[in-house]
């Protein structure tokens, strides 16, 4: 399901009389189970590309297919359902719903999906432990550190076993130790559950974890190479 194929994606923004080309003829295939890093300087189009892949934003032209689904053919509501059931998102910050506890944040998607309460609770407890947050389940986001919050977001993203996780600079607000823990977690989940990861970053520490490294600049893909991960989880 998580095969991603995009062809000739273009997206421009108009701001103050200027036209900014955020995506310029981007074509890309990402296979199931991949662990991909999008790297590039700030403003190179990484976020725009991730948003397009997740159906949050629609490109001006080009096509995106995730498995059998053609994103440009889906309604707003169908795209919401696609994200709900198949795609996990992890953003740079403010990933959590402030009025819900860590557990409730993780359960949130499952609740919307209609997973029974018992099962939800079991899954949430398990996945929170998996990301190293056992004992902190009942805390609200404000009572968690930045790294812990990111891990709650990851727990939520993977609790429903999505095929694809899109993470937009997930370590940008984290110290090195928390960043390393988060990346280790991604690698483990990728290896043990086969979840596809597409992670954007301009952090060299993060790029080291990738098996495929895609470089972007000015909305274009400028490099795309397989690599031996050199900062593997221990």
């Amino acid at each position: 399901m998580s095969d991603i194929r995009c062809r000739n994606l273009c997206k421009t923004f108009h701001q103050g009389g200027e036209t900014i080309t955020a995506l310029d003829q981007v074509s890309l295939d990402i296979g199931e189970g991949a662990f991909v890093c999008l790297s590039g300087p700030s403003g190179s189009g990484k976020t725009t590309l991730l948003n397009a892949l997740g159906g949050l934003d629609t490109p001006d032209s080009g096509t995106i297919a995730i498995g059998e689904q053609r994103l440009e053919h889906l309604s707003r509501r169908q795209r919401a359902d696609l994200r709900l059931h198949h795609i996990g998102f992890v953003f740079q910050a403010y990933n959590l719903i402030t009025v819900l506890s860590a557990r409730e944040n993780v359960e949130f998607i499952m609740q919307v999906q209609g997973v029974p309460a018992k099962e939800r609770e079991k899954l949430a407890t398990g996945v929170l432990a998996e990301v190293g947050l056992a004992g902190l389940e009942e805390r609200r986001p404000a009572e968690l550190s930045g790294g812990q919050q990111q891990r709650v977001a990851v727990a939520r993203a993977i609790a429903t076993r999505p095929a694809l996780v899109l993470a937009d600079e997930p370590t940008a607000n984290l110290d090195s130790r928390s960043a390393a823990r988060l990346m280790d977690l991604f690698v483990t989940l990728n290896r043990e559950r086969g979840v596809t990861f597409v992670i954007s970053t301009h952090d060299a520490r993060v790029m080291g974890y990738a098996r495929r490294l895609i470089g972007m600049r000015d909305g274009r893909i400028v490099s795309d190479q397989e690599q031996q991960p050199h900062a593997m989880a221990i």
Binding site: G54, L56, R76, R77, A80, D81, L82, R83, L84, H85, I87, F89, F91, Y94, N95, L96, I97, T98, F108, I109, V112, R156
Partner: peptide, 14 residues
């Protein structure tokens, strides 16, 4: 922002 987040997580507009 939080509403945007919910949409990103797959909460339908309804």
């Amino acid at each position: 922002r939080e509403i945007g987040l919910m949409q990103a997580l797959g909460m339908r507009p309804g």
